[in-house]
């Protein structure tokens, strides 16, 4: 024993040789998620005159491997809002637990007050922004569907950077490129057209887009979930739907990539 505190509790140099302290401070800086692992693909959302339709398929991919085929990517909150998650599935599960505990806390502290979809979206956006500012992002792109504080249909997006966006039709991931242009045909005048969109029109358009996505998005599946939030604040959720009326005739025409030679 000597009088150097840094030597106390360590093997003695004169017996064991110089102490290898390399493990004490690793040379690399601490790093967080650089890319998602198990991912979900697009989420679609459409506002109609008395509510919102939201859909996502039930697939969780591990890279290009269709790893889990029964993952529910639409989650409900407080029985009045639906969140559709794209991106990392483990981060989705974390957020779901977080929201679950938020809901319990809300209901525990007083009755009669509930967070609506708009409040929920604000909260999620803050969570995303906090985490990206910590350089430790939650790798998701979410759609929040429900009602705002005036009881009107609400649909908004938030992503891993904390960016928010709102429109009568929304799509995340591949859907932003493939489905969004098709969905926009429903609402030529943006918010002004929502009053002309019926529930059936919205559902049909979403189903059609899910089909297009299954045709062209290699990380998608033909099993999907679809939820309708009505103006009464009720959620009609179907979690094991199958795409109907598929036609792969067009695939024959495609040349230039894939297995064909010419």
């Amino acid at each position: 024993m000597n009088h150097f505190p840094q030597a106390w509790g360590r093997p003695r140099d004169d017996i064991y040789g110089p102490y290898d302290s390399s493990h004490l401070h690793s040379s690399l800086p601490q790093s967080h998620t650089q890319s998602p692992a198990v991912t979900g693909t697009s989420v679609l959302g459409v506002k109609f005159k008395d509510g919102v339709v939201i859909a996502a398929d039930n697939l969780a991919s591990y890279g290009s491997l269709a790893r889990f085929t029964d993952v529910k990517r639409l989650r409900t909150f407080a029985g009045t809002s639906v969140i559709g998650f794209g991106g990392d599935v483990s981060d989705m599960q974390y957020l779901d637990r977080l929201l679950q505990s938020l809901d319990i806390r809300e209901n525990y502290s007083s009755h009669g007050h509930s967070l609506n979809a708009k409040n929920l979206h604000t909260y999620l956006a803050k969570i995303f922004y906090k985490r990206r500012s910590d350089f430790n992002p939650l790798w998701n792109n979410v759609l929040v569907a429900g009602l705002d504080d005036e009881g009107k249909p609400f649909l908004s997006q938030a992503d891993l950077l904390g960016t928010t966006f709102s429109a009568p039709t929304l799509a995340t991931g591949f859907g932003a490129h493939l489905a969004q242009p098709l969905l926009r045909r429903l609402v030529p005048h943006d918010e002004g057209s929502v009053k002309d969109v019926t529930r059936e029109m919205a559902i049909d358009a979403v189903k059609e887009c899910m089909k297009v996505l299954f045709y062209r998005d290699a990380r998608s599946s033909d099993r999907y979930s679809i939820a309708v939030v009505t103006k009464e604040g009720e959620i009609e959720m179907k979690e094991d739907e199958k795409l109907e009326g598929q036609s792969w005739a067009f695939a024959d025409m495609i040349r230039g990539y894939g297995t064909q030679v010419n």
């Binding site: 409040n119 929920l120 604000t122």
Partner: peptide
């Protein structure tokens, strides 16, 4: 800030 909601009075 966090929810965009005025806090309930009872709370």
């Amino acid at each position: 800030m966090t929810y965009g909601r005025p806090i309930p009075v009872e709370r």
